[in-house]
């Protein structure tokens, strides 16, 4: 799966947690979940669990703490998919 495909999937994962649809539509690697998408930190666990379910992976706490923007999230998803393969 390519980074672009994961980015598109990530949009669906993030959609329920952001009201800023404009920022979501223009998402790129640098897009910060809290600062740019205005996602509340209380939803970060939801996002990690939804990503785990979508990509059938497990994201451990050491990996989860590195997720702050779309790029770092894609890195972790790819890393975990590779570990599973």
């Amino acid at each position: 799966m390519s980074r672009q495909e994961i980015l598109e999937g990530l949009k669906s994962v993030l959609a329920p947690y952001t009201m800023d649809k404009e920022a979501l539509n223009s998402i790129n690697d640098e897009t910060e979940f809290i600062k740019d998408l205005k996602i509340n930190s209380a939803n970060l666990i939801d996002i990690i669990i939804d990503a785990e379910e979508r990509y059938e992976i497990e994201i451990d706490p050491d990996s989860a703490e590195k997720i702050h923007n779309a790029g770092s999230c894609i890195d972790i998803i790819l890393e975990k998919m590779k570990e599973k393969a």
Binding site: N40, A42, I45, D46, I48, I49, E52, P61, A64
Partner: peptide, 21 residues
């Protein structure tokens, strides 16, 4: 601050969720 209306009791009770907190 946590607005409890925006949390899901059902989801919170799941080990997959609470074990991350």
């Amino acid at each position: 601050i946590v607005a409890l209306a925006l949390t899901s009791a059902e989801r919170t009770r799941k080990e997959k969720f609470f074990s991350k907190i």
